[in-house]
Amino acid sequence: MSQELSDLDRRLINRLQDDLPLTQRPFASIAEELSLTEQEVVDKVRQLRDDGLLTRFGPFFDAEALGGAFCLCAMSVPEERFEDVLTKVNAHAEVAHNYQRDHALNMWFVMATETRGDIIRTAREIEHDTGLEVLMFPKKREYFVGFRVNA
């Protein structure tokens, strides 16, 4: 892990991955645990965020519960056409994330749209634009995740 982090920073990063209480002073319990003032906690969180060690502080929403549709999609793109196909795929605002992966299916992207119908329509458009098949892997079930990064 990164060397420039102090012990306090590490404890704070680990602690901030827990759920904070919904109260007027959400930093009070952390401040007490770490023997800091609440203002010191707020300042440190801001510093960690500004330094890019924390990406975001706030509520984490279940994207699907907010409405809208999501779908993981994959394409097998010939190497020599990769950049051209990428430009065409990314041109669709519905494509939210896109990753190159080392597999015959080498382009994996997530579409985020208002409706399920928009997902299928966008996939057909991408197939039309590129002449390549878009495989769709909609989520059938999500399993509970207990992930934490130990700073």
Binding site: L54, P59, F60
Partner: peptide
């Protein structure tokens, strides 16, 4: 906010660490 949490719209309130900066 408490209700949104009960209904699963909010999963938690906290910070997201940057995996890459933390060596992951």
């Amino acid at each position: 906010l408490e209700n949104l949490k009960k209904n699963g719209v909010i999963r938690r309130i906290g910070a997201a660490p940057n995996h890459y900066r933390l060596g992951m």
